[in-house]
Write a protein that binds this DNA or RNA. Structure first.
Lengths: 141, 141
DNA sequence: CTTGGTGCAAAGGGTTTGCAACTTA
DNA sequence: TAAGTTGCAAACCCTTTGCACCAAG
């Protein structure tokens, strides 16, 4: 995992203790974390609400993106430079993979969602592809 | 929408009033419904819990399948014959489309999820593709 | 009679909101 | 000082569970 120095102030976010810790957590994992994961893994105890608000502000500033976990579930992952490339605001056309065994949800940054030809008159704005199965690590056992 | 006579007893489900109404609702819509949609659209008032249990039994009998709504959201739609084809239990490799304008989530039965080549040692069991945008009806305006 | 379905109440989990206190630019 | 951030409490979903009652095979 690349640990390039992401700075909160670059995203118009005050570098508060909670934000720095949450950012650190997200940077130190190469898979997506749920709100609960984050809340429990923080070394300092921050209020649950603060974590929610932290994630919300990260989202609105484009620092992280939502990741489909299972059907119905949500996790969060850092946006890579790829997300910020291109003219349009944000690109998240990569595939998300959830491992049924270890439960980890990873962004397959290099696997892109193929373009789908939709029926007549349907226009696409965004797409999310979640693949469930067994990940590389669990398959090695 | 095809109204072919789906029989609850074919799915080992007793044809109770609640189940018949819920099935009727699902049959009369060509888009997926959430638990709340169903609860509110039932002509007779059934307990919320009963609707939940009805959906759960429909799911376990393979009469309906879960549909990704937004990220984090769940709706339900009838399984078509396509689902029951093939050797394996169930196939839901079609694309789901959520319209940002009318809010309807439809099963694009004919649009299949393309096979994705995963990185080394990843094995796929299931996949879900949700496309958000504007549907054919809303685009005609 | 025995199984399964329903309703009601309650509990549980996740998320949001209001407000007062605090921090910091 | 003014704006942004936090903690606490409470409110809101949405969903599940326990239990007693009812209905149907």
């Amino acid at each position: 995992m690349e640990h390039k120095a992401l700075s909160l102030s670059d995203f118009d976010l005050r570098p508060t203790p909670c934000r720095m810790e949450v950012l650190g957590l997200l940077q130190s994992h190469d898979y997506a974390l749920s709100q609960g994961d984050i809340e429990h893994q923080l070394s300092s105890q921050f209020d649950r609400v603060t974590v929610y608000r932290t994630l919300k502000s990260f989202l609105s500033q484009g620092l992280i993106h939502k990741v489909l976990d299972d059907i119905g579930g949500i996790k969060y992952a850092l946006c890579k430079e790829l997300c910020h490339q291109g003219g349009h605001a944000h690109q998240h056309d990569h595939v998300h993979f959830k491992c049924d065994q270890c439960g980890q949800t990873t962004c397959l940054e290099l696997v892109h969602i193929p373009s789908i030809s939709l029926p007549e008159n349907f226009t696409k704005k965004e797409s999310n592809l979640l693949i469930q199965g067994v990940c590389n690590l669990c398959n090695q056992v």
